[in-house]
Design a protein around this nucleic acid. Structure first.
Length: 593
RNA sequence: GCGCCCGUAGCUCAACUGGAUAGAGCACUUGACUACGAAUCAAGAGGUUGGAGGUUCGAGUCCUUCCGGGCGCACCA
C-alpha cells in the first residue's frame, strides 16, 4: 500500500471529473503525473506536477489548472489542504488520520510491511556471481553476489516471481588452464617434480593459477587416484583433472557463498548446455531468422593485435540489434565461443518463461552488454528484456591505506579473507556493499566498517534497531501487564503522538512502501540503505529530543496510553528497519552489547 | 581511434528516473551526559554539480562539444 500511488489515483480521478464537467479537455495523458514527497517538508506532505505536465495539452495556464484541481481535491476526505505553488506544483496536506492508518498497517504487516503487488507475479530471472570455477571468490565477486542477492530479494518483495541463478562457466579454455595448474600441484604432491620446478613453470606461464588453494585440491586428488596421472598423457589426464578441479572449485565457491549468506535457486552448467545440444539449437533459432552468416570481421580499430589475420567466422548479426559489429559464435577450431553458449543460456531462460532477465557482471564485462542484449532481443522477437547491472571495483583499504594483495589467492584478495577479518562478518560486508550504487566504485575500509560509530552505516542502523528494542524492554518494565504485541500496539491511540518529530517519523514509516517500489523499479537496492539511514537518523533525533524534553520520552511511567502510542511509533520504525535489513540479508540486532 | 560507465562540499558518497532553496556522513567550529543506551543528538560553516553551448515552464539528471578518470575493443571468459 503505497500512499503516494493512492493519491495519484485520486488525482487522476479528479482530473477525469473535471473533464466530465468540461472544465478541462478530456483524454489527457496522465502518465507523466507524479505524486511525491516534496523536498522541503514545509511545502506539505505531497506534491504533484499534474498541472505543469498537462497545461500544454489542456491549453491552460498551469496555475489555472492547478486551481481547478485544488478545488476538486479539497472536497476529498483525507485532504486537509491543496495549494498551488511555485511554477504550478500542487501541494497537498494529508489528514492526520491517514498517517495513523499507515502506522497501523505497518504494525499489522510486520516483516511483510512494504511488500508490493507491483510485479504482479511476473517472472524475473536474476543471474549473479557466475564466477569461473577456477578458484575461490574474491572481493569483486562478493560485491556482485551481495548486490544480486539483495536485488533478487527486493524484487521478490515488490511482487515479482524471482529465480536466482548461477551460470557455471565450465566449458571454456579457463577450465583447461585450471586443470593444468592442478596437474602441476599434483605432480608436486606425488613427488614427480620439485616445488622449485613448479615455481619455475608458474613463472614461465606454463601454469596460470598459482594460488595455494590448489595444493589442497591436489592432495585430495592424490588420495583419491594415487599417482595414476603422473605418467599419463595430457589427453588422458586433462579431462579427468578438469572435471575434478571444477567440482572441487564449485565446492569452494559454494562454501564462500554460504559464508556470505547467498543462496541460488538454480545452477546452470555451460558444459551441460553444450553437451545437450542447446547451443546448436539456439544457433538454429537465430539461423531461421537469417541472423547467422559466415563472414570476415574488420580488424579492430586502434591497436591491431599482433596475431590478427582475416578469418571467416560464424557470425551473429548483433549489429541489427544495436551492437556495433556482428559477433562470432564459433572459434576457428569449430568450438563454441563463450558468447554462443551464453546465447544458449539466455535462450534457455527465455524458454523457461522469463521475459525479464537481469545479469549482474563485473564492470570489466561492460563491452559484453550490447551483444547480449542484442541476442536476447533476437531470440525473443523483442518480447524479453535483459538488464545488465555492472558492479564496479571494490577498493580495499585499511585506515586509508590500500590493502596488499594476498599470496594465497595468487592475485586477488579472497572474499573469505575479508569476511573473516575481525569485526567484519557477513552482515557488515553485505550492508556496506549495498551503500553504493552498483556502477560506482566502492571503498571498503577495514578500520571504518568495524568502527562502532555513526561513521559506520551498518552500526548506525543496527544501533537504532537495538535502541528501539531497549525502549520496548523499558516499556515492559514500566507496564508489566501491558500487551506489547504489534496487534495491541496497532490499537493504541495514535492521536497522542503530537510532536512534529513524532509525526515526521510516522511519515517516514509511511514512505517505506514507496521506497521499496522505487528501488525495485530502478533495480537499485542501495536506495534502501539510504532510506534506512534516514529512518534511523529520525529515530536517534527523537530519542535525544526526549533527553532534553522529558515529556517527549518514549516511556512515561504512569501514562500507559501515551507510552503505548509511542511504543507503537518506535515499533513501526523497528518494522521498517527489520523489513529493510531482511531484504539485505542482514540480521537486525536486539542489542549491541 | 571507437564504445560503455563516471566527474557533485576538503574527503567518501546521495539526490525519488526532468521538479521548488542540490543533501548526508567524515573532518572543522560551538553546544547537550545526577539522563529511557552520549556507540547519540542540536547548531554553524562548507558548492558556478569538470568547462561551454542547447532542448523547456524547470536540467546535477536529456542532447551536442571539449577536458579529466575507469573499463572494454576478433577464434578470453
Amino acid at each position: 500500500m503505497n500512499i503516494y500511488n493512492e493519491f495519484k489515483t485520486l488525482i487522476v480521478q479528479a482530473l477525469a471529473a473535471l473533464a466530465a464537467d468540461g472544465a478541462i479537455p478530456a483524454g489527457l495523458d496522465t502518465s507523466k503525473i507524479t505524486v511525491e514527497p516534496p523536498r522541503d517538508p514545509a511545502h506539505g506532505d505531497m506534491a504533484t506536477n499534474a498541472a505543469m505536465v498537462l497545461c500544454k495539452a489542456a491549453g491552460m495556464k498551469p496555475r489555472d489548472l492547478a486551481d481547478q484541481l485544488a478545488a476538486r481535491l479539497m472536497t476529498l476526505d483525507g485532504v486537509d489542504s491543496a495549494e498551488p505553488a511555485g511554477p504550478g506544483f500542487l501541494n497537498l496536506r494529508i489528514a492526520r488520520g491517514l498517517w495513523d492508518r499507515a502506522l497501523r498497517s505497518a504494525l499489522q504487516a510486520g516483516a511483510s510491511y512494504g511488500d508490493s503487488q507491483m510485479g504482479g507475479g511476473e517472472k524475473v530471472n536474476v543471474e549473479y556471481v557466475s564466477a569461473n570455477p577456477t578458484g575461490p571468490m574474491h572481493v569483486g565477486h562478493g560485491r556482485g553476489a551481495v548486490f544480486g542477492d539483495a536485488l533478487a530479494a527486493l524484487l521478490a518483495k515488490a511482487g515479482y516471481a524471482v529465480t536466482k541463478e548461477y551460470y557455471v562457466n565450465d566449458a571454456g579454455a579457463q577450465v583447461d588452464v585450471l586443470a593444468r595448474a592442478l596437474h602441476g600441484r599434483y605432480l608436486v604432491a606425488c613427488g614427480a617434480i620439485s616445488q622449485a620446478e613448479f615455481d619455475r613453470r608458474l613463472e614461465a606461464k606454463e601454469y596460470q593459477y598459482g594460488g595455494d588453494y590448489l595444493v589442497e585440491t591436489a592432495e585430495i586428488l592424490k588420495s583419491r587416484d594415487g599417482d595414476r596421472w603422473v605418467a599419463a598423457d595430457e589427453a588422458e589426464w586433462l579431462p579427468a583433472l578438469r572435471a575434478f578441479g571444477i567440482s572441487e572449485m564449485m565446492v569452494l565457491i559454494k562454501q564462500d557463498l554460504l559464508a556470505l549468506g547467498v543462496e541460488h535457486n538454480v545452477f546452470t552448467s555451460e558444459l551441460g548446455l553444450v553437451q545437450a545440444g542447446q547451443v546448436a539449437k539456439a544457433k538454429e533459432a537465430l539461423e531461421t531468422q537469417g541472423l547467422i552468416y559466415t563472414g570476415v570481421l574488420e580488424p579492430p580499430k586502434g591497436k591491431l593485435p599482433d596475431d590478427w589475420e582475416p578469418r571467416p567466422q560464424t557470425l551473429f548479426r548483433a549489429s541489427q540489434f544495436g551492437d556495433e559489429v556482428d559477433r562470432p559464435l564459433q572459434k576457428s577450431d569449430g568450438s563454441w565461443t563463450y558468447f554462443a553458449s551464453d546465447i544458449a543460456y539466455h535462450h534457455d531462460k527465455y524458454v523457461r518463461g522469463f521475459n525479464q532477465m537481469i545479469d549482474v557482471f563485473g564492470a570489466d564485462h561492460g563491452g559484453y552488454v550490447k551483444r547480449m542484449q542484442a541476442a536476447v532481443k533476437a531470440l525473443s522477437a523483442g518480447t524479453a528484456h535483459l538488464d545488465v547491472k555492472l558492479c564496479q571495483l571494490v577498493k580495499l583499504m585499511d585506515n586509508g591505506e590500500p590493502v596488499k594483495m594476498s599470496k594465497r589467492a595468487g592475485t586477488f584478495i579472497t572474499l573469505r579473507e575479508v569476511i573473516d577479518h575481525p569485526g567484519i562478518g557477513k552482515d557488515v560486508f553485505r550492508f556496506i556493499m549495498l551503500t553504493r550504487k552498483n556502477d560506482a566504485p566502492l571503498e571498503f575500509d577495514y578500520a571504518k566498517v568495524t568502527e562502532q560509530s555513526k561513521d559506520n552505516p551498518v552500526f548506525y542502523v543496527q544501533y537504532a534497531h537495538a535502541r528501539a528494542c531497549s525502549v520496548q524492554r523499558n516499556f515492559i518494565e514500566a507496564f508489566p501487564d501491558a500487551d506489547v504485541s504489534a496487534e495491541a500496539l496497532a490499537g493504541a491511540d495514535l492521536s497522542l503522538l503530537a510532536d512534529d518529530d513524532e509525526v515526521g517519523l510516522m511519515k517516514l514509516i509511511a514512505a517505506w512502501p514507496r521506497a521499496v517500489e522505487q528501488a525495485a523499479e530502478s533495480h537499485e537496492p542501495h536506495r534502501l540503505a539510504y532510506f534506512l539511514h534516514d529512518v534511523a537518523s529520525a529515530f536517534h533525533a527523537l530519542w535525544n529530543k526526549g533527553r532534553e524534553h522529558t515529556h517527549l520520552r518514549f516511556v512515561e511511567a504512569g501514562n500507559l496510553p501515551l507510552s503505548r502510542a509511542r511504543l507503537a511509533l518506535v515499533w513501526g520504525m523497528v518494522t521498517v528497519i527489520a523489513s529493510g535489513l531482511s531484504v539485505f540479508g542482514v540480521e537486525a540486532k536486539k542489542e549491541m552489547r
